[in-house]
Design a protein around this nucleic acid. Structure first.
Lengths: 196, 196
DNA sequence: GCTTGATCTGAACGCACGTTCAGATAAACA
DNA sequence: TGTTTATCTGAACGTGCGTTCAGATCAAGC
């Protein structure tokens, strides 16, 4: 028994990442062994090391990939000139992302502390950039007189905290659709920043 | 070398809980060993088992203790008849608790998944009770016509998410005092639920 | 059909884990 | 002062960890 028929690098590689993402989200990085990930992929633990240098690099790669995808996806969104429309776009975008990439969002909040310092700093920088995007929208809206918050920085944190919170209660197939959730949160977010 | 002079049960016990809380919050339950906790207390790992049956029980005890303290502290607060005042009380109470018991709040969100099923169910029930308190306030406020939210349940989740988010950025001795943070969040929370 | 190279197995490495326990120690009490 | 008892040590247990690697296997190119 050795290599299973029909298995290839371009299949196993992604499957390792998918399995790791799912298991890390469910049990936590430290609680998931390489053997467990390998078994989920249908492979021996040693085979993982054809694809990743070590466990830490696997975690970092997942978090980095997530943040890159998040920022790129935001860039690809339409960015209306009107600050309030841009804010609505951000809220809806963030909700959508949070619901569709629930596991990625989850581990990128939970597993930060399991990153080695250099890795942590990199992810933290990307996160700050993302938070900065929202803060800039709020500043523009403030300057345009469309909204009023006492502190744009804190307001950005508050909004992101509020929006990201959906993944603590949202379950697919539940009472509310993604669109309904987005509408509810946009209503509250809009009011919260005084754009009644 | 055996028992260190002057050490007693009523000192070691709490110190174990304090060390475990701090270490779990910083590195995560699965990443912290019993030997590490013991060394923090200045004791050998075996000595821990004079105070707790096992590691899981230690985690559960910390989370249960936190939830009990949270609910009891809320009961001890004044509960004005006016729903809007009660909402303000809740927001300020939650911010205060989140800032002062940062580590407890942190692990009671992060380490839920490391609880065995029966333990998880217990903590989850207490958490639901706490969320229910806020939802009831929102319903009362709605009935009194003082605020307007499309969905009290979701609004409760959104507010708690927003408020709890402070512990992702707040650092003691930073730019804002606890009182200033509370004021900022109360301003946004009040507007968010349409009590402009 | 042979060779090559990518892919995987299976066993092994040293290490750290949670937990147990017999024995040592010192504080408390007679 | 002698005895008791709560408290802690230090070593040990079986287990599973992340990682390495020599050798087996199979797909592809000639």
């Amino acid at each position: 028994m050795a290599r299973t028929a029909g298995s290839h690098s371009d299949i196993t590689g992604p499957r390792i990442r998918e399995a790791a993402l799912r298991l890390f989200a469910k049990h936590g990085y430290a609680a998931v062994s390489m053997r467990r990930i390998a078994s989920e992929v249908g492979v021996q633990a040693g085979a993982l090391y054809n694809y990743i240098p070590d466990k830490q690099a696997l975690l970092f790669s997942l978090l980095k990939g997530h943040m890159d995808e998040l920022l790129e996806a935001w860039e690809a969104e339409p960015h209306p000139a009107d600050p309030l429309a841009r804010l609505e776009g951000f809220v809806r975008f963030h909700i959508r992302f949070t619901l569709r990439r629930a596991e990625s969002i989850f581990i990128s909040y939970m597993e930060l502390r399991n990153l080695e310092p250099e890795n942590f700093a990199q992810i933290e920088a990307l996160r700050s950039r993302y938070e900065g995007l929202l803060e800039q929208i709020l500043r523009d809206g403030q300057a345009a007189g469309q909204l009023s918050v006492p502190d744009t920085r804190i307001a950005a944190f508050a909004l992101i905290g509020m929006l990201t919170g959906v993944n603590t209660w949202y379950r697919e197939g539940g009472r509310l659709s993604e669109e309904e959730v987005a509408a509810l949160y946009w209503d509250m977010a809009r009011k919260a920043v005084g754009a009644g």
